[in-house]
Design a protein around this nucleic acid. Structure first.
Lengths: 218, 218
DNA sequence: GTCTATAGTGAGATAGAC
DNA sequence: GTCTATCTCACTATAGAC
């Protein structure tokens, strides 16, 4: 579309992208009900009405932000999930990819966690944008379950419950990077997103999962 | 106070307790911003103004509900955390106690998860009720870190990062019971809180943790 | 595509009778 | 301790000029 993109020039951020950036950060921190359209507009440097020009409703904005985050995560970890190699090798790569995807932006994990455990900003009807979120989520979870299943079938993993183990892997991976101030306190106030902290988390989580699942750990 | 309590008669639930029950359920599902004082009052069978007679503000109600939940959890798992025996035995007991405490009410885990990762319903000032929540939380987390530390010091556990492992244990334990519809979908629509599902979760999580941490798994 | 102005609704919170 | 009535304010969303 924009010819400048092909020449490697820095793409000027559209208002739409700016709005989504702000919305992603605010919704991640305060949840759907805790964010007003006015504050999003202010931080994006627009009038409140301009916001409704780009997104027809607050619901649409929320789900669009969640969808963008989920697709970034999926792009990061699906290659590892579907990769070649044994289940052990795929588990290794997937754990590392999960950590890297969740550590990319501080807003990613909180927003993912919210989309996993509150799925209903409005109690009644789910708009079409919400269904698109579900599609990406179901695909990811299915592949994660498949990995656990394959490891059991090949005898590489212990004979665990596939859905229980899936829940455990998700909770262990996502919570850490969603834990905000609480997590930082645990690490003496240090950021969870520094290169050093991320590298340590990557190693710790991978070894934790491997020891927990692999039948004959070395 | 009430002399009837000493005779074992069923204690009539006070309006205050009724309000807290309703608030706990609603805040767990929808978060601070997603709940209105009117709906709480309606479901508790009171007028909105009566609610403000019992709790001076929405913030106070929220933190009081969170505090009550946290204290119930602490009462359930602190005996296991502080119990006698080796680190392995304490980890076993603690994992089981965590599952039982989180499975007691469907609202417990979501509300705990929220208190862990959003700690700030209002961005600016933290009311005194919020600090009481922090005290309980810090005590619990400290004991959990202590357990991991003891296991490493005694050589029972691998040489893991204590804060990272603490985060992993919390995430793995709490997320499952907070995952609501998402989790039920994973288990083919079955409730996460049936006796059978809880028993399986207890076994799976305990074995997962033991294999992940114990130096020479059997 | 952005703005000003405003409609219309519901929120949290208070006053004061009973 | 509960109620009715009300205040004030912020919210989502829309209309229409530029």
């Amino acid at each position: 579309m924009a010819p400048d993109r092909a020449r490697g020039l820095p793409a000027p951020p559209s208002s739409r992208d700016k709005i989504l950036d702000v919305a992603e950060a605010r919704f991640a921190r305060a949840g759907f009900g805790g964010v007003g359209m006015r504050e999003v507009a202010d931080e994006a440097g627009l009038g409140k009405s301009s916001l409704f020009h780009h997104f027809p409703s607050k619901d649409a904005l929320y789900f669009e932000a969640v969808k963008r985050t989920l697709e970034r995560i999926a792009a990061g970890i699906e290659p590892a999930l579907r990769g070649p190699g044994s289940a052990i090798e795929r588990l290794r790569a997937t754990s590392d990819a999960m950590v890297d995807a969740l550590a990319e932006h501080p807003t990613t994990a909180p927003l993912l966690l919210r989309s996993l455990f509150e799925m209903y900003p409005l109690a009644d009807d789910v708009p079409p944008e919400g269904q698109a979120v579900d599609v990406v989520l179901q695909r990811l979870i299915g592949q994660l379950q498949g990995l656990v299943h394959d490891g059991i079938a090949s005898g590489e993993f212990r004979d665990v419950s596939v859905p229980d183990t899936t829940q455990t892997l998700i909770g262990a991976a996502v919570f850490h990077f969603a834990s905000g101030e609480f997590g930082e306190d645990l690490f003496g106030g240090a950021s969870l997103f520094s290169a050093k902290a991320v590298a340590r988390r990557r190693d710790e989580l991978r070894e934790f999962f491997l020891h927990a699942l692999v039948r004959h750990p070395i």
